[in-house]
Amino acid sequence: MSAPAQIIVEDVRHHYRPAVGREVLALENVSLQVREREFLALLGPSGCGKSTLLYLIGGFLPIETGKVLVDGRPVAGPGPDRGIVFQNFALFPWKTVRKNVLYGLERQAMRREEREARAQAFIDLVGLTGFEESYPSQLSGGMKQRTAIARTLAFDPHMLLMDEPFGALDAQTRSLMQGELLAIWEKTRKTVIFVTHDVHEAVYLAGRVAVMSARPGRIKTIVDTRFDKADPEVRRTKAFVDKVDEVWNLVRDEAVKALEKRP
């Protein structure tokens, strides 16, 4: 007998309402279950609503139809149980690295020395020792995203919602950050939902990949992608390459559809 899923999405529909123009059905009858301590990737072509689904779980957007339950309770807004990391880093530009990482800790009842020590520990963890007093504008893209990850890990959320976190990074930095994220996940074992449109990234990072269809978004299939991630050569094994191919074939049809639907 297994425990009930930590995150349950049931029959969720959602409309995207632009400031001008007609509303668009972004998600249609999406159902998904994410288990505790699982690393799940949400994969799909751009505009398929994968970020929208993540924002609904995060409580940033109102739920129109369907249900979203986190730890058995319906989502009614954002909360520190669900940490979020955005593609554009979303660091407070007026705060230094240290103050950014401290922000979530200051919202909790915690002694000052404890806060400072904890912030420092997470700055060290992501390799930003020595940059505590730098402002985000003084950092490279990779360093900004490390800061954002440290900030989110520091206040110890039960789960991490990651919205294409490495999408704005160059190829080398992206590859390094993927390795580091896996190492951090091995250490902390938080539930992770990782939104991406990069097949290779999804297969490498996640234990399961939920492939979404082109707009309106639906979960098309869920593919098991468990490998021995500790093996540095895993990405060159035949099993891994075949898995990437298999997922890529599933996504390709949707990417083509998404292109055709583009106005």
């Binding site: 940033f60 954002p78 909360g79 955005f86 979303a90 979530g104 206040f155 959320p157």
Partner: peptide, 14 residues
């Protein structure tokens, strides 16, 4: 104001 900044603050308990 960047809505991602607003969401970040809210998700950190503000």
């Amino acid at each position: 104001s960047d809505r991602h900044l607003i969401w970040s603050a809210r998700s950190m308990g503000a």
